[in-house]
Amino acid sequence: EEADLLIAHERSAPRGLLTLTAPVAAGEDLLRPMLDDFIARFPAVSVRLQLLDRPVSLIDEGIDIALRIGHLPDSTLVAVPVGEVRRVVAASPRYLAKHPPILQPADLARHEIVSMTHFGLDSWSFPTAGGAAIPQVVQFAPRFIVNTVRAAIASAVDGH
């Protein structure tokens, strides 16, 4: 009976290596504190966290769980929505003082765009005023391309 109880307990308690991936900023700010609590709660589990601001192949890279921000392409993987993130267009006051005003999304095509490698290198789409079903797409040629949210924010704050 003791052996059966011991085996049942071992099967119910998580153990082994759990491999996760997430975007850098979300992983550092949101996921990392949760993983600290998880590791404390389940001492038989080791965690490998890969923070990457690019898509990865979960199967090829041996990832168990991925936190993704954005729309997922059709996939055979199981996805569970856990929240919403809103993207914004930002510029520093110093940049805005030196360049033409931005009154509508189409005006962005005349500006120095900092773009992220996986969030639209040469176009962005915006919801139309009045809630029309077809979004407004703005084409642009980026002046600066970065691969992390923090690099894009730093560029906007520095006046680019």
Rank of each mutant, 00 (worst) to 15 (best):
E2K: 11
D4W: 11
L6C: 07
L6F: 11
I7W: 12
I7T: 13
H9T: 15
E10G: 04
A13S: 13
R15D: 07
L18T: 09
L18C: 09
L20D: 03
A22D: 05
A22C: 13
P23D: 04
A25Q: 11
A25E: 13
G27Y: 06
L30C: 09
R32I: 06
P33N: 05
P33T: 02
D37S: 14
R41Y: 05
R41F: 07
F42H: 11
F42Q: 04
F42P: 01
A44V: 02
A44P: 00
V45L: 05
V45H: 07
S46V: 03
V47I: 10
D60W: 14
D60P: 03
G62V: 12
I63A: 13
D64Q: 03
I69V: 15
G70M: 04
D74F: 10
L77S: 06
L77Y: 07
L77M: 08
V78C: 06
A79F: 05
V82Y: 06
V85P: 01
R87P: 07
R87M: 14
A90H: 03
P93A: 06
Y95V: 03
A97C: 06
A97F: 09
P100R: 11
I102M: 03
I102G: 01
L103A: 12
A109D: 06
A109R: 14
I113M: 03
I113E: 00
I113P: 00
I113L: 07
M116N: 01
T117P: 00
F119M: 05
G120I: 00
L121E: 01
D122V: 06
D122K: 10
D122G: 08
W124R: 08
F126S: 04
P127Q: 13
A129W: 11
A129C: 09
G130W: 04
G130R: 04
A133D: 12
I134F: 12
I134R: 15
I134M: 15
P135M: 10
P135C: 03
P135F: 07
V138I: 14
P142I: 01
R143V: 11
I145R: 01
N147M: 02
N147A: 09
R150I: 12
A151T: 04
A151P: 01
I153W: 11
A154Q: 09
A154E: 09
